[in-house]
């Protein structure tokens, strides 16, 4: 009986199902909560910024402003891709920035019941970027924490390490 009540409580307290936008980088499927996404820009060609920190993917023109992008590939230590890429325009506490990904997939609805914390075996730098993973039917969806992807946070983290 108490187990049933726990379950009920759980249902009440736990956030309802989460909508995430799935993106692909390399072999991995990542998810970004759609609440943080302002816009998806396809086929952008970021302008490189010499001497910028490694994670910076370049600049893109976005709505009259110049947007700094973070390359997820570079963050994960993969080789950067040339040519057009998709960009998620994200909003964080520090303002807007772009996230460069290989391709943007569909919007998925995931349930908190399928959520697992980030495995402790992952190296620390990556673990900081991830907010756990959702078990999908045939694959894993690694959640990204938009706040942690903010260039300001990243450069602070870089300076700290």
């Amino acid at each position: 009986m108490s187990a049933a009540r726990d379950a009920a409580n759980h249902k009440e307290n736990a956030p309802a199902q989460v909508e995430v936008c799935s993106v692909r980088v390399g072999q991995t499927l990542f998810g970004v909560p759609i609440a943080h996404i302002l816009e998806i820009v396809g086929g952008a060609r970021p302008q490189p910024v010499p001497l910028a920190p490694g994670f910076v993917g370049g600049l893109v023109h976005y709505r009259g402003d110049v947007l700094t992008t973070v390359s997820l590939r570079r963050l994960l230590g993969l080789t950067a891709k040339n040519g057009a890429q998709d960009i998620l325009v994200l909003e964080s506490a520090g303002g807007c920035f772009g996230l460069l990904v290989d391709s943007v997939g569909e919007v998925l609805t995931v349930s908190p019941a399928d959520h697992e914390p980030t495995p402790a075996t992952l190296d620390e730098r990556r673990r900081a970027l991830f907010a756990g993973a959702y078990k999908l039917k045939d694959t894993l969806l690694v959640m990204l924490d938009p706040e942690r992807l903010d260039p300001r946070w990243l450069s602070a983290a870089q300076a700290g390490s």
Binding site: Q47, V49, L51, A52, P53, V56, L59, V60, H61, G64, D65, V66, L67, T68, G94, G95, F97, P151, R152, L154, S155
Partner: peptide, 27 residues
């Protein structure tokens, strides 16, 4: 002149960015 984000301002060599006539960006 368009302002740059703090991360790029910190490089210290660029005072901003601009959008050129052909749509390209220039630091």
């Amino acid at each position: 002149v368009k302002p740059l984000s703090a991360v790029l301002k910190d490089i210290g060599l660029y005072s901003g960015a601009t959008v050129l006539g052909n749509g390209d960006l220039a630091l």
